[in-house]
């Protein structure tokens, strides 16, 4: 009797749970798929509404319009550049710092760790930082994208935790063979740290690709230095305040609307991430469990 009751409740649970998961997947994917459908649909036709998961009137014009917009193309170029350079710089510098503070016999091991952990809790805030970058001549320059966030205590701690798990005997035997710290870092520790390096690189790269605030704050005035996300934001606000929407319509021959162009730009901005992230899953799962949460 009790057994039968339980299996009944169990069956209800399984059904409910499956329905819940399907709903979850729909809510997660629908907005993305809808944007995709709109991006391939004729702009004026889309204004009638009723586009859900499949375009009604196919066209490539939205994408052609996006690729003809100079600011979006330059933005994409800058975004790629900052992602590649920023990730490399951050990875190398965080790895070097983590290597130093994970050497058990390093003279200032504790002090150097403390120096960086403090930065996680105390920072100057927006205005002092803004003025500092201005005084350093970093406004209206590419360097503001890649230099300021280069070393971060969080990423350093993630790598350090991983390095601490590597047996000391490897370092000691290398030292007996006459290897200096440089060699130990490059030839012995780093090859073993590939998974954690991949994790940190992924975190930094996603952050770089998605950031727009620094572009708005520091490089707004130089149209050759703004990023793709920032240009996308401008596109969004031009759609929301319908005022400037006529301009986009004019230079495209009538059947492209700001909404459809933005859909195409959104899809192009998402594309690198959507293509890459399923393959990098195992890295960010290790990263999350290694270092807590990173937003």
């Amino acid at each position: 009797m009790t057994k039968k009751k339980r299996t009944m409740a169990d069956r209800v649970f399984v059904v409910c749970n499956t329905v819940f998961m399907i709903l979850f997947v729909i809510i997660t994917l629908y907005p993305v798929l809808n944007t995709l459908a709109v991006s391939f649909n004729d702009g004026t036709d889309a204004l009638r509404g009723g586009i859900y998961l499949w375009p009604r009137k196919w066209t490539m014009k939205n994408y052609v319009t996006v690729l003809q917009k100079n600011n979006l193309v330059t933005g994409a170029y800058i975004s790629v550049l900052r992602t590649v350079i920023g990730t490399l710089l951050a990875l190398v510098s965080n790895a070097i710092l983590a290597f130093i503070v994970s050497r058990k016999r390093f003279l200032f091991k504790k002090q150097l760790s403390f120096f960086w952990v403090v930065t996680m809790y105390v920072n100057g805030g927006l205005i002092p930082t803004f003025l500092l970058y201005k005084n350093l001549g970093m406004t209206n320059s590419f360097s503001v994208y890649v230099i300021p966030g280069m070393i971060s205590a969080f990423n350093m701690l993630v790598i350090r935790t991983y390095m601490n798990g590597i047996p000391d005997s490897l370092e000691e035997s290398a030292q007996l063979d006459g290897a200096g710290y440089g060699t130990i870092f490059v030839k012995i520790i780093s090859p073993l740290c590939k998974p954690v390096y991949a994790t940190v690189a992924l975190f930094v790269a996603v952050g770089q690709w998605n950031s727009w605030f620094d572009a708005m704050l520091y490089n707004r005035l130089d149209s050759k230095l703004t990023t793709l996300q920032y240009e996308l934001m401008k596109l969004l606000s031009s759609v929301t305040n319908q005022g400037t929407s006529m301009e986009a319509m004019k230079n495209s021959g009538g059947n492209v609307t700001p909404t459809s162009v933005r859909a195409a730009a959104t899809i192009l901005t998402m594309l690198p991430i959507i293509c890459l992230y399923p393959f990098l899953q195992r890295y960010f799962v290790t990263g999350m469990t290694l270092g807590g949460v990173k937003e």
Binding site: F24, T28, L29, P31, V32, T35, V206, W209, N210, S211, W212, Q229, Y230, L232, M233, L236, R262, T266, T269, M270, I273, I274, Y277, Q281, F284
Partner: peptide, 15 residues
């Protein structure tokens, strides 16, 4: 379920 985390707030607010 991971997908939205990787999208920027610009894209999310657009959606």
């Amino acid at each position: 379920s991971y997908l939205p985390h990787f999208l920027s707030w610009i894209i999310v607010t657009g959606i």
